[in-house]
Computed example of a mutant assay.
Amino acid sequence: MNNRKYKKREEKQMTDVLIIGSGPAGMTAAIYAKRANLNVLIVEKEYEGTGQMAESSRIDNYPGFYGINGYELGEKIREHAEALGIKFLEAEVTGIQKTEESFDITLESGEVQSSKTVIYTAGAAHRKLAVPGSEKFENRGISYCASCDGAFYHGKDVAVIGGGNSALDDALLLSEICNKVYLIHRRAEFRGDASTLAKLEQKENVEIIRNAKVQEITGNGKVKILLLDTGTALNIQGVFVAIGMIPQTEAVKKLVALDESGYIKAGEDGVTLVPGFFVAGDVRTKELRQIITAAADGANAANSAIQYIIRK
Score class of each variant (00 low, 15 high):
Glu287Leu: 11
Glu135Tyr: 11
Ile86Lys: 09
Thr15Asp: 12
Lys116Glu: 15
Ile225Lys: 15
Met53Ala: 05
Val239Cys: 00
Val214Gly: 14
Arg127Cys: 05
Tyr120Ile: 08
Thr196Glu: 14
Thr106Met: 08
Phe137Thr: 02
Leu168Tyr: 03
Val160Pro: 02
Thr196Tyr: 07
Tyr182Val: 09
Leu183Pro: 00
Leu129Asp: 03
Leu73Glu: 05
Ala212Gln: 07
Tyr62Asp: 03
Asp297Met: 07
Asn303Ser: 09
Ile105Trp: 02
Asn3Glu: 10
Leu183Gln: 04
Lys253Thr: 11
Ala296Pro: 08
Arg9Leu: 03
Tyr120Met: 10
Thr196Trp: 06
Ile309Gly: 07
Thr232Lys: 15
Lys87Met: 08
Glu72Lys: 11
Lys222Trp: 03
Leu173Arg: 04
Ile20Asn: 09
Arg191Cys: 00
Ala257Lys: 15
Gly270Tyr: 01
Asn205Gln: 00
Asp282Cys: 04
Lys312Arg: 13
Arg187Phe: 05
Pro63Val: 09
Leu173Pro: 08
Ile19His: 07
Met53Lys: 09
Thr285Pro: 03
Phe278His: 05
Ile208Phe: 04
Lys76Pro: 02
Leu38Glu: 09
Asn165His: 00
Lys224Leu: 04
Gln97Trp: 11
Ser102Asn: 15
Ile236Cys: 10
Ser304Leu: 02
Tyr120Cys: 09
Gly64Arg: 01
Leu227Ile: 14
Glu75Thr: 13
Leu168Arg: 10
Cys178Arg: 03
Lys254Pro: 06
Val93Pro: 00
Ile142Arg: 13
Lys265His: 10
Glu176Gln: 14
Gly141Phe: 00
Ile184Phe: 04
Ile306Ser: 07
Leu234Lys: 13
Val223Asn: 00
Asp169Pro: 05
Leu227Pro: 03
Val252Asn: 01
Ala294Pro: 03
Ile19Asn: 02
Val252Phe: 06
Ile292Asn: 11
Gln52Val: 13
Leu273Met: 11
Ile31Leu: 05
Ile59Lys: 12
Arg186Ser: 10
His154Gly: 00
Leu183Tyr: 01
Phe137Lys: 01
Arg78Asn: 03
Ile217Pro: 03
Leu183Arg: 00
Val239Tyr: 08
Glu260Cys: 07
Ile309Trp: 00
Asp229Phe: 06
Ala301Glu: 08
Ser109Pro: 13
Ser115Ala: 13
